[in-house]
Computed example of a mutant assay.
Amino acid sequence: MMLKNMVHRKLQNEKYDERKEFPTLESIATTEVGRHFEKFATLEGLDERLHAGIRKKIIENAIELTIKEGADIHSVNTTARSIHLEEYWKKACEYRWSKEHRAKTLAIENNGLSWKVAYLERHVTELIEKIANFEEFYQKKEVIHTLHIVSSWIFSLDLAVVPQNFDLRIVFENLPLLREVTLKYSEGPMTEKRRDSVGMKLAEAANLGESVKNSYSLVQLNVSGNEIDDDLFKFIMAGVACNISLLELNLSHNRVGDHGAKRLAKFLIRNEILVVLNLTNNCIGYDGSRYLSQALKINKTLEELHLKLNKFDDKAGSKFFKDLSLNTGLLMVDLSANSLGHLSARKIAELIQTGTGLRQILLGSNDFSHDSLVIIKGSIPEPRGCEHFEASKFSEIRL
């Protein structure tokens, strides 16, 4: 047939490209290797520089044939170490997740602008979240094997469901480059949550503490919304206190109270690393505020402190802002939605007038009277600062 077409076109004086009718040996080879990519994924014998074009063509054929045939994407245990072409991983992401509209996975700005990192991080997240029983040997072995293979490309994990009995130490031990971790604890599928099944348990808190203790790359830990009370917090802080890399700790939307604040204060007195501490929506009252403010007299590295939606009354706020006059490192503090009043307003004004390193103070939804707001406004030195305070409906001070 091909020969007949060639003769016909020549008789008709038509332009004829032999390469289209008779595929080259290279074209046949790249197509067949792509078709059986699982067997040849390492592309052994093809130098990355000398044979870059051939390697690229094989990889493109592999993903195109997978999409065309509707097959599962190639196993990361096969491809992670051998394929670095971003176009492959982009197509793999789109093929595996675009139908489910998982924009978060496909937003590579959250993954170091790398499609490969985006794919592997999402793959590991789903692998862990789908574990039914981590005590079963084959599941444990599979997770450890996969983590070991992909370890060079995993920098962040966002686990919406941490499985029961899952040992986080395996994650931290096998992912030495892990920098950001977000954890949510609950029993059963997300759609079947009950109040008593949501949140971290004692054994899980102890396991998290042990895991964080020996992590030397962890920069950001987010355990927001896990029903962590002072008893659980003790076990977590046992590990956090020994960590030497953590810059940001998010404990928002938990049940940390005054005893937990005391433990945090002891940590802040000794710590010279942490930059951001988020305690939004917890149960810290007067005693806890005293512990924290005493610690801030000594701590010089913390730059952001979020204390919105706690139990600071006017007396607590007054003492807190009085002690902040001795702090030199804090740049932002959020005490919105507490119960600050006139006494706190006076101390805020004194703090601003005597000079402070703070550049932003958030105060919305407190119990300030009109006179209290006038006192605060009068202490702001710059006219633009006063204008912004009014424009923000007296909720934000910028210095």
Rank of each mutant, 00 (worst) to 15 (best):
Q139W: 06
K140S: 08
E142D: 10
E142T: 08
V143R: 04
I144Q: 15
H145C: 09
H145R: 15
T146E: 03
T146D: 06
T146L: 13
H148W: 15
I149S: 05
I149K: 08
I149R: 08
S151W: 05
S152C: 05
W153E: 11
F155M: 04
S156A: 06
L157Q: 01
L157M: 04
L157G: 00
L159H: 05
L159F: 03
V161A: 09
V162P: 00
N165K: 07
N165Q: 05
F166C: 06
L168P: 02
I170L: 14
I170V: 15
E173D: 10
E173N: 13
N174G: 01
N174K: 14
P176Y: 03
L177K: 06
L178P: 04
L178D: 02
R179G: 01
E180I: 10
V181G: 03
T182S: 14
T182Y: 10
Y185G: 01
Y185N: 02
S186H: 13
E187C: 00
E187G: 01
E187P: 00
G188K: 04
M190H: 13
T191Y: 14
T191A: 13
E192A: 09
E192T: 10
E192K: 11
K193Y: 11
K193P: 07
R194L: 12
R194V: 09
R195I: 14
R195Q: 14
D196E: 15
S197C: 04
V198G: 02
V198Y: 09
G199Q: 02
A203N: 15
A203G: 07
A205F: 01
A206Y: 12
A206G: 11
L208M: 05
G209S: 01
G209C: 03
E210Q: 15
S211Y: 07
S211F: 04
S211M: 03
V212M: 04
K213H: 11
N214H: 14
S215R: 04
S215K: 01
